[in-house]
Simulated scan of single mutants.
Amino acid sequence: MKLKNWCVGFTLLGMVCSVSAETLTVYSAGPKGLSKELVAGFEKETGAKVSLYQATGGKIMARYQAEKSNPHADVMISSSLGHAITLTKAGELLAYQSPNAKHVPDFLKSATYVSQGTAVLAIAYNTQSKLPVPTTWSDLTKPIYKNQVTMPDPRKSGSALTLVEGLSEQMGSKAWTLFSALKANGILIPGANKAALNPVLQGAKSVVFGAVDYIALDLKRKGETINVVYPTDGTVLAPRPIMILKSTKHAVLAKKFVDYMLSKQGQTLVAKTLILPARSDIKSDRPGFGELKLINFDTVSAAAHAEQTRDKFANIMGQ
Rank of each mutant, 00 (worst) to 15 (best):
146 K>M: 08
172 G>Q: 02
192 A>V: 02
124 A>M: 02
193 N>P: 03
169 E>H: 07
153 D>H: 05
160 A>M: 05
160 A>W: 04
115 S>Q: 11
178 L>M: 15
193 N>C: 12
148 Q>E: 12
181 A>T: 01
119 A>F: 15
143 P>S: 14
142 K>V: 03
132 P>T: 02
127 T>R: 01
127 T>G: 01
184 A>Q: 10
121 L>I: 02
191 G>Y: 03
163 L>R: 09
171 M>E: 15
128 Q>H: 11
192 A>H: 01
118 T>W: 13
193 N>F: 03
119 A>Y: 07
165 E>I: 11
125 Y>N: 06
117 G>R: 13
122 A>I: 06
179 F>E: 05
168 S>A: 11
170 Q>G: 05
194 K>L: 15
177 T>R: 05
122 A>E: 08
161 L>Q: 09
164 V>M: 13
168 S>G: 04
152 P>G: 04
117 G>F: 06
192 A>E: 14
123 I>T: 08
176 W>S: 04
134 P>G: 12
135 T>M: 05
117 G>H: 10
122 A>R: 05
170 Q>F: 01
141 T>H: 08
131 L>I: 10
155 R>Q: 14
135 T>A: 08
162 T>C: 07
165 E>A: 15
138 S>M: 12
171 M>W: 15
129 S>A: 08
153 D>R: 07
132 P>W: 09
161 L>R: 09
145 Y>H: 09
139 D>F: 00
132 P>N: 11
117 G>I: 07
189 I>G: 02
122 A>P: 04
154 P>M: 14
175 A>Y: 09
118 T>C: 12
141 T>G: 03
144 I>E: 14
115 S>T: 13
151 M>Y: 01
165 E>P: 03
177 T>W: 00
182 L>I: 03
137 W>H: 12
130 K>C: 07
166 G>S: 12
118 T>D: 11
190 P>F: 08
137 W>Q: 04
141 T>Y: 10
149 V>I: 07
177 T>H: 03
116 Q>P: 05
144 I>S: 09
130 K>A: 13
119 A>P: 08
168 S>I: 02
129 S>E: 09
190 P>L: 00
194 K>R: 10
189 I>Q: 02
191 G>T: 04
191 G>N: 13
186 G>T: 09
177 T>Y: 07
169 E>R: 07
138 S>L: 06
144 I>C: 08
